[in-house]
Amino acid sequence: MLPRITAWWTILRISLQERLVYRGDFALGTLMRFLPIVTQIFLWFAIFANLGTGARITNYTYEELVVYLLLTMVARAFSSMPGLASTIARQIRTGDIKKYLTQPVDLLGFMFLSRMAHKLAYYIVAIGPFALVFFLCRGYFIHLPDAPQAAAFAASLILSFLLGFYLEACIGMVGFWFLEVTSLLFVYMLFSFFLSGHMFPLDMLPQPFGTIVQFTPLQYLAFFPAQVFLGKVQGWDLAMGLLIELEWVVLFMLLSRVLFLRGLKRYSGYGG
């Protein structure tokens, strides 16, 4: 057990150092990522302005909506996995995956640790820009969650990280069968962009779409954590929500394992 932990620790440390090389570029990039939100906030402001003061759109006040959009940024910082699926698929195609087969390192475990390090490095650097933006928008945070809600919010974020990781890993594993997953990945990105609630709160959708999106795992990538923070899901619903999120995580965790083992049976590696 101990050697394994040392190995994990080493992988984590190396990835962390690798990630922190370009921290300036990183911080600037993070700050830039808020620009689309700025236009979104102006758009919503214009929509609310037409409705008059104190207006609500499906239970959202203007302030809540701004907080919602900012929170989806936080949730996306946990759940988005840029380049994960395409890296796995590329390694399958080019044969790089051989190194995981010949060395005593597990592919999914290694990817998980390096992704965790990637995220940790990201938070270390991104906390500055995030703090700045949240400070500038402090006027919109009218009510803050209490301790249990904050804990539930943290739990939903950690689960969204796990869900995002295993979901993309599954798509990457499809590379064993298709070799090229770019178009599949594009479809996934398309749906996750709209159906994770990244762009607008999903409960604003009219029926039947409103119900349909409740059944996809994508809502847990951004919509659900933001709802938890805003106190829009409480008590029994909150517990149920977290439980369902956990179920999705377990499902995709197992699925990625199965796809990996099945895929290895199909895989043939050539050359040295």
Partner: peptide, 9 residues
């Protein structure tokens, strides 16, 4: 446009 008739007053 389910919520508002125009963008901005």
């Amino acid at each position: 446009f389910r919520q508002t008739s125009q963008i901005g007053r």
